[in-house]
Simulated assay, not measured.
Amino acid sequence: MPDPLRQLLASRDWLMADGATGTNLFNMGLPSNMAPELWNGDRPDAVRRLYRDAVEAGADLFLTNTFGGNASRLNLHGAAHRVRELNRAGAEMAREVADAAGRTVVVAGNIGPTGEIMVPMGSLSHPRAVEMFHEQAEALKEGGADVLWVETISSEQEFRAAAEAAQRADMPWCGMMSFDTIGRTIMGVTSAQLSALVERLPNPPLAYGANCGVGAADLLRTVRDFVASGNERPLVAKGNAGIPHLEAGHLHYDGTPEIMADYAVLARDLGVRIIGGCCGTTSAHLRAMREALERRPAGPRPSLEEIAAKLGGFTSVGGY
């Protein structure tokens, strides 16, 4: 049987994904030095609330609280031995919330980067990266995730390792990189290189795109490059709610719900199929995005000037 995400993509012009995980859990009291995944065991009530808030705001797809749930990142908190437990718990709670929604809602098993640098620049080998991603993928599958959601990747090597892990787990997947350094990832990958890479993989993702970065305008500039590449695979855009600013020791994002509503419509008009928010995006932003997507008629593909005018301009010039 086709997976739920594939079915929704076949029947809908656009889908709305969820918003931030860390931002919203921090707002619920998560300490800044604590791995969010630990709350899957310690504060399941808060994690369920995170999930429900996204669904009630209109999300068709939401991510599990497992972004840093691989052995390498959990090892920083003395919890490498809890990979299966924490990922499975995060997915099981998500499955419960999705099944209670009264409509089709996709549970996306969230997989972030390992936090290590792969060879030859670093010491992380391909087999070890695949092993870590696969361990996480199998736990998310056990917990009931519909699809694996690989995001914020910066290198082709790590993207390939995650793709291989998804194949080993026999799971559909989506893959995103974060373009935050003058149109490139921190490891130098361009949007054109990612568009080409996904088609060379033995098991291409259902959808690919960009998340996080430095602002919604910059992310949509990257999306325009995906479109220009000619790759017709469904696109994902999950941009931050504006730019973060440090105020009284805390990060605050300057993107209002109104700005994120404009971002969502611009993304749709660019041809993005899965539209969500990343850092700073709350349920208030999501509600505004959903309303705008449903009420505003589709328009022509926006220019860079139109994107900049509505979203506050780009943080960099050149490099694209």
Score class of each variant (00 low, 15 high):
Gln7Lys: 13
Thr64Asp: 02
Leu246Glu: 10
Ala163Pro: 12
Thr181Asn: 13
Gly29Tyr: 12
Asp99Gln: 14
Gln193Ile: 02
Ala100Ile: 08
Leu266Asp: 00
Val236Lys: 05
Trp149His: 07
Leu61Gln: 03
Lys310Gln: 15
Val147Ser: 10
Val272Thr: 11
Ala165Lys: 08
Ala35Lys: 07
Ala145Gly: 01
Gly209Trp: 08
Glu138Lys: 13
Val119Cys: 12
Arg160Val: 03
Gly276Gln: 09
Gly280Leu: 03
Asp146Gly: 05
Met93Lys: 00
Glu232Thr: 14
Asn24Asp: 02
Gly242Trp: 00
Leu235Asn: 11
Val227Gln: 10
Gly319Trp: 04
Lys238Leu: 03
Met1Phe: 13
Gly209Leu: 12
Gln193Asn: 04
Arg128Phe: 02
Val47His: 00
Cys212His: 05
Leu8Thr: 00
Val227Trp: 07
Leu219Lys: 07
Gly299Tyr: 12
Glu164His: 13
Ala139Glu: 02
Glu291Cys: 06
Ala80Leu: 11
Asn110Trp: 06
Gly19Arg: 06
Pro204Asp: 03
Ile243Leu: 12
Gly271Cys: 01
Ala161Met: 04
Met171Trp: 10
Val147Leu: 09
Gly68Lys: 05
Gln193Gly: 07
Val55Gly: 03
Met28Leu: 15
Arg287Phe: 02
Asn240Asp: 10
Val214Gln: 12
Met118Arg: 02
Phe62Val: 10
Gly78Glu: 04
His126Gln: 12
Thr222Cys: 14
Cys212Pro: 01
Ala163Asn: 11
Arg128Glu: 12
Ala161Thr: 02
Trp173Gly: 04
Ala139Gly: 00
Leu30Thr: 10
Met289Ser: 06
His250Ser: 01
Ala288Val: 02
Ala241Asp: 06
Thr185Asp: 07
Tyr253Gly: 02
Thr190Trp: 01
Met289Cys: 09
Ile307Met: 08
Ala10Gln: 15
His77Val: 11
Ala145Asn: 08
Asn65Trp: 01
Ala89Pro: 01
Asn75Ile: 01
Val83Gly: 10
Gly213Thr: 04
Ile274Ala: 06
Leu86His: 06
Thr315Gln: 15
Leu201Asp: 06
Gly69His: 11
Val236Phe: 06
Gln136Phe: 01
Asn70Thr: 11
Lys141Asn: 00
Asn27Ile: 00
Val130Leu: 04
Trp173Thr: 08
His285Asn: 07
Ser32Asp: 14
Phe26His: 13
Trp14Ala: 13
Arg95Ile: 01
Glu305Ala: 14
Ile243Glu: 03
His285Cys: 09
Pro172Met: 13
